[in-house]
């Protein structure tokens, strides 16, 4: 893809300057970025506020308190900051209902990009929260 085409495509794909300000819009943004480690100081100030109109911290608090979104640390950055990844809670909700094969998890996560769902699943694996009834995923 030529650089100028990519430069036009990326902001639109990320919904930079989106008109929507709802909590559903925020959930979509988190789903798109889930598993990505970002400095905690940057997530709300630069990333979410550019993608959700009239972003307010209360919106994210609401999603976290509902269990829709989970945050996980990804290492410190000096004494005042650290990297954090937002993870959509739908995988956890599904696994809390019953052990599941991947297609069921993918559906529960809302579909979309398979790699994004896999990244989130493996975040949970490496966090020690999720396991598999075979050793095969680790061997592969």
């Amino acid at each position: 893809m030529p650089p100028e085409v990519l430069a036009r495509f990326l902001p639109a794909w990320h919904g930079i300057g989106a008109e929507s300000s709802s909590i559903d819009r925020l959930a979509d943004v988190v789903f798109q970025l889930q598993g990505l480690a970002l400095p905690a100081s940057v997530i709300e100030r630069d990333v979410l506020s550019a993608r959700v109109r009239d972003y307010r911290p209360r919106l994210l608090d609401e999603l976290v308190s509902m269990g829709e979104v989970v945050w996980a640390g990804r290492g410190s950055l000096g004494q005042q900051d650290g990297r954090v990844a937002l993870i959509h809670g739908r995988l956890r909700e599904q696994l809390a209902r019953r052990p599941s094969f991947f297609p069921e998890l993918y559906t529960a996560a809302g579909g979309g990009d398979t790699d994004a769902v896999l990244d989130a699943l493996w975040d949970l694996v490496w966090a020690g929260e999720v396991t598999n009834d075979t050793f095969a995923p680790l061997r592969a």
Binding site: S100, F101, L105, T114, L118, L121, T131, N132, P137
Partner: peptide, 11 residues
């Protein structure tokens, strides 16, 4: 990531 194997569950 391998995915088509086994069943996933909470630890």
């Amino acid at each position: 990531h391998p995915r088509a194997v086994g069943r996933w569950s909470l630890t």
